[in-house]
Design a protein around this nucleic acid. Structure first.
Lengths: 124, 124
DNA sequence: CACTAACGTAAGTATGCGCTAACCTTCAGT
DNA sequence: ACTGAAGGTTAGCGCATACTTACGTTAGTG
């Protein structure tokens, strides 16, 4: 997920995701929408593809890109765990648009965090 | 939201959020959990506070930090817009593998993206 | 008042990253 | 085979940022 977050932290890459989210687009077509050069966009596309947010399909000399939203699953899970109320809020939103019954799940095991150390006091 | 994303893109800051999400904690108490120095953690806390993800409360010489999950609202909204099926997927998952077919919804209004330019062809 | 604990702040450094310019690759048409 | 179009790759540059050390600040305690 670290990679996914680093990827979407970049504004141009988020814009690319929104663009491609609407319909499949060729690399040059995407690049034309941005102020930066085409190679820069190409690099962004590589990053997004590598982290699993984009799918690439070749057609002749062109490369068509399409959104792969499943790549966002981990991130959504992270946010949901951080925000336990989200389930209720989400349920309310869902019931406002559709009519479905949603059962909440338990918060899950402690998420282990990182770098377990124990030093302190401005160690010199 | 740009600021929120930049904030949670940092692994240590995400770990801080998960920590503080469980209970209110003092700055030093938080810093003790990490390998980096206390000032570094203090800077992270400032960032998280500035973007609206943390609430600070002073008690004597101590500073207690508490999660402010509302700061994640925009980000959740972004992900949901990118992933229109999310509501249905969520409902489907909650209904314990029900047999409903998933119909896609309309993409929504064009999200304006950024930096509208129109140059191309590797402008020299 | 002096001293200490608990923090934030400032200055400096190093690594990371997004960008550009130039180059290389692949495919389609003639 | 040659040529042009489409697009990825490389080297290098400049800026952002996470880190450390050192210092400043505030609130208790003797």
């Amino acid at each position: 997920m670290d990679a996914v977050l680093a990827a979407i932290a970049e504004p141009n890459r988020r814009a690319i995701l929104q663009l491609v989210g609407q319909r499949e687009m060729a690399a040059g077509e995407i690049a034309a929408q941005f102020a930066v050069t085409r190679p820069a966009v190409s690099q962004h596309l590589s990053v997004l593809k590598d982290v699993g947010l984009l799918l690439e399909r070749r057609e002749g000399t062109r490369r068509l890109y399409r959104l792969q939203p499943e790549g966002l699953a981990e991130l959504r899970e992270f946010l949901t765990e951080l925000w336990p109320d989200a389930l209720q809020r989400f349920k309310a939103a869902a019931e406002a648009t559709a009519s479905g019954a949603v059962e909440s799940s338990r918060p899950g095991e402690s998420t282990q965090l990182s770098l377990g150390s124990s030093e302190m006091k401005d160690r010199r």
